[in-house]
C-alpha cells in the first residue's frame, strides 16, 4: 500500500516537472497524485467497480486541490491537473489496442467500454468540487 502511494507520488512529481510547476507546489501536488492513485487502487480491490473507484478518487483529489489552492493562493489547476493524471485510464486504452491487435474483439470491446466510462467517471468526479466552491462563494455573498 505504501509502495502504491510512493510510486504514485514519484510519477506525479515527474508530471509536475513536465507541466513546469514550481518547487513549492510540487510536493503538495504529488501528495495529491499519490493519494488519488492509492484511493483508486484500494476501492478497485474492495468493490471491483472501476467507475466508482475512478469517480471517488477524482472527487477526493478535486476537493483536496480546491483546499490547497485556497491555502497556497494558487489556481486550483496547479493541483488538479497533475493529481488527476494517475487516474486517467491509460491502461484501459492500451489493453483495448492490444486485444484489437490480437483480433480478440470481445475483450477489446470490454476494455474500450471501461476506458470511456472511466474517463467519464473522472470527469464527473472533478466537476463537483469547483461547483461546491462556487456555491459557498455565492452563499457568503448573500
Amino acid at each position: 500500500m505504501m509502495m502504491t502511494w510512493f510510486y504514485g507520488f514519484i510519477s506525479t512529481v515527474g508530471l509536475s516537472i513536465l507541466f513546469n510547476i514550481r518547487r513549492k507546489h510540487i510536493v503538495l501536488a504529488a501528495i495529491g497524485g499519490g493519494s488519488a492513485g492509492l484511493i483508486q487502487q484500494q476501492l478497485l480491490l474492495s468493490t471491483d467497480n472501476i467507475l466508482l473507484a475512478a469517480f471517488v478518487a477524482a472527487f477526493v483529489i478535486s476537493i483536496y486541490s480546491e483546499i490547497m489552492a485556497g491555502i497556497q493562493k494558487a489556481p486550483s489547476t496547479t493541483y488538479v491537473i497533475p493529481g488527476v493524471l494517475p487516474l486517467v485510464p491509460g491502461a484501459g486504452m492500451y489493453y483495448t489496442m492490444l486485444y484489437l491487435a490480437e483480433r480478440n474483439l470481445s475483450q477489446a470491446a470490454a476494455y474500450g467500454y471501461q476506458t470511456v466510462f472511466a474517463a467519464l467517471a473522472i470527469a464527473c468526479g472533478v466537476i463537483i468540487a469547483p461547483s461546491i466552491r462556487r456555491l459557498v462563494r455565492q452563499l457568503r455573498s448573500y
Binding site: T4, Y7, G8, I10, S11, V13, G14, I17
Partner: peptide, 27 residues
C-alpha cells in the same frame, strides 16, 4: 523560465518509471 533540459528529462523518467511500477512492473 521552464525547467532546464536535464530536469525535464528527470521529470519524464520519474513519470514513466513511477507509472510503469504502478501498473504492475516489478520494482
Amino acid at each position: 523560465l521552464q525547467y532546464p533540459l536535464p530536469i525535464s528529462l528527470l521529470g519524464g523518467g520519474l513519470a514513466v518509471g513511477g507509472f510503469a511500477v504502478l501498473f504492475g512492473a516489478p520494482a
